[in-house]
Design a protein around this nucleic acid. Structure first.
Length: 653
RNA sequence: GGCGAUGUAGCUCAGAUGGUUAGAGCAUACGGCUCAUAUCCGUAGUGUCCGGGGUUCAAUUCCCUGCAUCGCCA
């Protein structure tokens, strides 16, 4: 079985962000999954480089469109290795081979009458040098130039998309999995219930020259979408009017496109009708995913909350980024990204559950089995109901993982793995190997328990190869396993681990983010900066000063204020925390970790500086609505203040 | 304005062709263990299953309607 999986080619008008990373990781993980099944996979990604936005951006940057495209395309290519994205082909629409295909397809469709010259009327903005849609207008004006657009008519070439509308509707209805998840299939069908307009596929060179010239009319270049969509075929060596190349006939029939919901229409409608007109069978599946919001807000350049995947990888390691994105998002729906959510998942799922399970098991191998895969002696340590349960669950996990991966339900696939992680932790407690170790007569049982754990871990690592390649490899190496893994060959219980093989783990898989290491957050906020990088993190040595500096705008977001302490008391059952009631000028409660250095009574009446817009957090059940700044030096701690008495609530800047 | 989706525990979400005490993870509280990365295991909760009406012996689940959020289209 073959698989051809693609990401969209990314438009080079913006740097790679979290959304691009997600699409790419999804495609990569799916590709790795197919390979793990033993299938042959081709995975293509790339960049889309023509069009007026690029021409404009290049002009603003004072360079040629080609130089501009080269620069941004290189950035998209460069984020792949750190994300462990292994593509087979990185295509660019400025590649000569691609351009030839686009022209040949245009020529063919033109000759067969699917592309015709016609009038195009619309609202044109002189300032933007382009047509605006009704939607873009604000109060009838161009939002950028604040001038009313003019209604003009010009000649353009149109693709007779409407000819294939009936066929497309039938195809979608006959193939329920053609567009998934279902919500997007419904959306397309609903859109198709109205007559399609023909697609304008040209731009006059009087307005735009950065594009592929129409082969039959030098006064026009090709509309970017018509150009871009063909990458999926041109990247396989497709050429119209000829025999399909071997690559093409292997991979095109099994093509699966992964896209975000904003480009559903071009893929579901333009591309499919183009293919039909070309006489090429449609792709096999279109997988549509939702958006990543950031802190529940839409990610946008103007808000300045764009998350750069490289920043995350440097800080947390690519395995955990891949895990988070695939585990947190329910494919198809929108999801919210936040550092708090990321760290919560990292600590609970990766460090506490999986990492610690692996670590405690390996420690027991060292202490109770001489650091080797235990030798099992027949008749000793006979199996229990718990053993059978664990084995059955591990088996079921592999099956369930596959079922969910096939459906692009990555979060459920990972959930299935974590059920066994959790069961393994229970298995350890129920069997208490440290108790068995005290009784020499129970040595057989002890060894069987340890063997079962090792075998379960081996089976856990197997599916993880597709999501967290570095971690899976580290687990396999520690277990003394080498060689290419395969779901069918290695997905069954037993027979793989070499009895007596020396095994060990040198460093934890996922070091926990330890708040104690963070820069003294007096009010115990989760502030996980200064962490030892996970061992699979890419080198962060490239960090420059640039990365550690913040802009004035960023600083302005921090609301520092002078607050007057009006009451203070110790927090019950805590040595470190004081509950302060402050006026800033409104009354609020701030929990500060200063009890070892200050008595409650000496705080009352003092003025301190607080961060007033810190997200409230609960400490020992008390909600803290801010954080007191303090400095630690020579084992002493000093709370911050200002050098004279000021009104409570005064801004500090 | 048209079409559609969603609304379930503090948070993120599962769920049932309508039927006994509505689930999971995280967070919270208490207890236990010590092999382990202060990790793990156990126990404990809280829910007008968005509001209103209808069908039914029975509705959170079906129907209608309203509200809210989101998406597509115009």
């Amino acid at each position: 079985m073959n698989t051809y999986v693609t990401t969209p080619i990314f438009y080079v008008n913006a740097e790679p962000h979290l959304g691009h990373a997600y699409t790419t990781i999804v495609a990569d993980a799916y590709g790795r999954y197919q390979r793990l099944k033993g299938n042959t996979v081709r995975f293509q990604t790339g960049t889309d480089e023509h069009g007026d936005k690029i021409a404009t951006a290049a002009e603003a940057a004072g360079i040629t469109p080609q130089a501009y495209a080269d620069r941004v395309s290189a950035m998209f290519r460069a984020v792949c290795p750190p994300l462990q994205v292994e593509y087979d082909n990185f295509i660019r629409t400025t590649d000569a081979a691609h351009q030839r295909v686009v022209q040949a397809v245009l020529q063919k469709l033109y000759e067969q009458g699917d592309i015709v010259l016609s009038d195009y009327s619309g609202l044109y903005c002189q300032g933007c040098e382009r047509f605006l849609t009704e939607k873009e207008l604000q109060g009838g004006l161009c939002p950028d130039h604040l001038k009313p657009p003019v209604a003009i008519t010009e000649q353009n070439y149109f693709f007779k998309m409407s000819r294939y509308q009936g066929w497309l509707i039938e195809h979608i209805k006959a193939n329920p999995d053609f567009i998934t998840p279902e919500r997007y299939r419904n959306e397309v069908l609903s859109f198709l219930s109205e007559p399609l307009e023909d697609l304008c596929i040209s731009r006059p060179t009087s307005r735009l020259t950065w594009g592929i010239p129409l082969p039959f009319d030098k006064n026009f270049v090709t509309y970017v979408w018509f150009d871009a969509l063909l990458n999926y075929l041109s990247g396989l060596g497709y050429f119209p009017e000829g025999e399909m190349s071997a690559e093409c006939s292997h991979y095109w029939p099994v093509a699966e496109h992964v896209v975000a919901k904003d480009i559903l229409k071009p893929h579901a409608i333009y591309w499919t009708t183009m293919l039909k007109a070309m006489g090429v069978a449609p792709y096999r599946k279109l997988h549509v995913h939702g958006y990543w919001n950031v802190n529940d807000t839409k990610m946008s350049k103007s808000i300045g909350n764009v998350v750069r995947p490289m920043d995350l990888v440097e800080k947390y390691g690519s395995d955990s980024v891949r895990y988070f994105l695939l585990r947190e998002m329910s494919f198809g729906l929108d999801s919210s990204f936040s550092l708090a959510a990321f760290e919560a998942r990292y600590n609970s799922d990766l460090a506490n559950d999986l990492g610690n399970l692996f670590s405690r098991t390996m420690a027991m191998v060292q202490k109770f089995a001489g650091g080797k895969v235990p030798l099992l002696v027949d008749g000793e340590g006979e199996s229990t109901e718990l053993d059978r349960q664990l084995i059955a669950a591990a088996h079921e996990m592999v099956q369930e993982f596959c079922r969910q991966m096939e459906e692009f339900h990555f979060h459920r696939a990972l959930q299935a793995v974590w059920e066994v992680v959790s069961l393994s932790n229970k298995y350890i407690v129920s069997n208490a190997p440290w108790e068995l170790a005290k009784d020499p007569a129970k040595r057989g049982r002890l060894h069987l328990v340890i063997y079962n754990l090792l075998e379960t871990l081996r089976l856990i690592a197997l599916p993880l190869n597709v999501v967290m390649p570095t971690t899976a490899l580290a687990m396999q190496v520690a277990l003394g396993i080498s060689g290419r893994q395969n779901l069918a060959a290695h997905g069954k219980w037993g027979g793989i681990l070499q009895e007596g093989a020396v095994i060990s783990l040198s460093t934890p898989l996922f070091p926990r983010f330890d708040q104690a290491d963070a820069v003294s957050p007096v009010a115990g906020q989760t502030k996980p900066q200064q962490v030892k990088a996970p061992k699979n993190a890419v080198s962060s040595s490239a960090k420059t000063d640039e990365d550690t500096l913040i802009t004035f705008d960023e600083f302005k977001r921090i609301d520092l204020r002078v607050a007057t302490v009006v009451a203070a008391e110790k927090v019950a059952k805590s040595d470190r925390l004081l509950k302060l009631t402050v006026e800033a000028p409104e009354r609020r409660t701030v929990v500060a970790g200063i009890a070892e250095y200050y008595q409650p009574e000496e705080m009352v009446g003092r003025q301190v500086i607080i961060v007033a817009n810190l997200k409230p957090t609960k400490l020992m059940g008390i909600e803290s609505q801010g954080m007191v700044l303090a400095a630690k030096s020579g084992g002493q701690l000093f709370v911050s203040t200002v050098s004279g008495e000021v009104d409570a609530g005064s801004k500090v800047a």
